[in-house]
């Protein structure tokens, strides 16, 4: 059991950036917008967060800068897809390519520089509990905030009036518009929210997971976040379960290798993807689940006159 503690701790750290990025994208997609630019926004967030934290010496400033950078990039996407009605898939892909290139360009001089890792916080009393303290109360603040974000997003999408409006817009923007709901404004805010969380997810990589900046450091995590949203059938709880599952199996396969398990490493490397797909397929055995949960207008441009 003691041996499992570091494994679980690593799992949480591995899953946290995915949770931020995927929860943001859940809100974006629920409003009917498909933003494939997460990877690009994460990288921009990673480099902005790193640069700001280095310059200011404060991680909070780093995360704030990362969120702002993510929002800035998402606004480009918003303007193109919402105002100019460009194709969302193509624009999202372009945003990723743009973010990858821009972050490399901006971070040219930051490569190879260290930054202090965001410290884990200890909670007086709780952190000292044997086993449980190590397991639950030994993380950095961003881990706890990711849990808060989940609760917030879940409440927003299911209980709040604005959240229900957002979902209505995602299902049928025409109807929502006809009854006087602000389709464009809502979608803009959703896209900006997704940009902010993707930026924070990126900064989590460059300030917590591996406190450094290197080109392309997200290594495909943006795409995994995107897949988690679909497999989590646009429900925050399932998205979070998926993220932990993915992080857990990734961690498990490394541990298994360390123990000398005679399984091909290629198979083990595949395991996180396979396991996540299998479990989420089991969750939604009924083929209709994905279809029914998918926001009906996902990926479609909306113009008030159409």
């Amino acid at each position: 059991m003691i041996a499992l503690v570091p494994m679980i701790a690593s799992t949480v750290v591995a899953a946290t950036p995915l949770i931020y990025a995927a929860l943001g994208e859940t809100v974006v997609e629920r409003s009917g917008v498909l933003n494939l630019g997460i990877e690009g926004m994460m990288l921009i967030g990673a480099v902005a967060g790193f640069a700001a934290a280095r310059a200011s010496g404060s991680d909070s400033v780093g995360f704030a800068a990362a969120a702002a950078a993510g929002v800035a990039l998402s606004l480009i996407f918003g303007f193109l897809t919402l105002n100019l009605q460009t194709n969302q898939v193509a624009t999202g892909l372009a945003l990723t390519l743009f973010g990858v290139g821009l972050s490399a360009f901006v971070g040219h001089n930051l490569a190879g520089m260290p930054v202090e890792r965001l410290e884990a916080i200890t909670i007086p009393g709780l952190s000292a509990i044997p086993l449980l303290g190590d397991l639950l109360f030994h993380y950095d603040i961003m881990v706890y905030l990711s849990v808060a974000l989940f609760v917030g997003v879940h409440w927003f999408l299911t209980k709040s009036r604005t959240g229900l409006t957002l979902r209505a817009i995602g299902e049928s923007p025409g109807v929502a518009h006809a009854i006087g709901k602000p389709v464009l404004a809502t979608r803009y805010l959703a896209v900006m929210f997704g940009g902010a969380t993707a930026g924070i997810a990126g900064a989590y990589l460059s300030l917590v997971q591996t406190p450094m900046w290197v080109e392309g450091m997200s290594a495909g995590k943006g795409w995994i976040a995107l897949a988690l949203v679909v497999f989590g059938t646009w429900k925050p709880a399932r998205v979070v379960v998926g993220a932990y599952l993915f992080g857990g199996v990734t961690q498990f396969q490394l541990f298994a290798q360390g123990f000398g398990l005679p399984v091909p490493t290629e198979f083990l490397s595949m395991l996180p993807y396979a396991a996540t797909i299998v479990v989420l397929v089991i969750i939604c055995r009924d083929p209709k689940t994905i279809l029914l949960n998918q926001p009906a207008s996902l990926g479609h441009s909306f113009h008030p006159t159409t």
Partner: peptide
């Protein structure tokens, strides 16, 4: 000697996890 194969040349996150795992073991 305990080797861990990460099946990538470059993925700081995964390399970090592999290092944490080896240290934990």
């Amino acid at each position: 000697m305990k080797p861990i194969w990460v099946n990538t040349w470059y993925d700081p996150g995964k390399e970090r996890q592999a290092a944490d795992t080896l240290i934990a073991q």
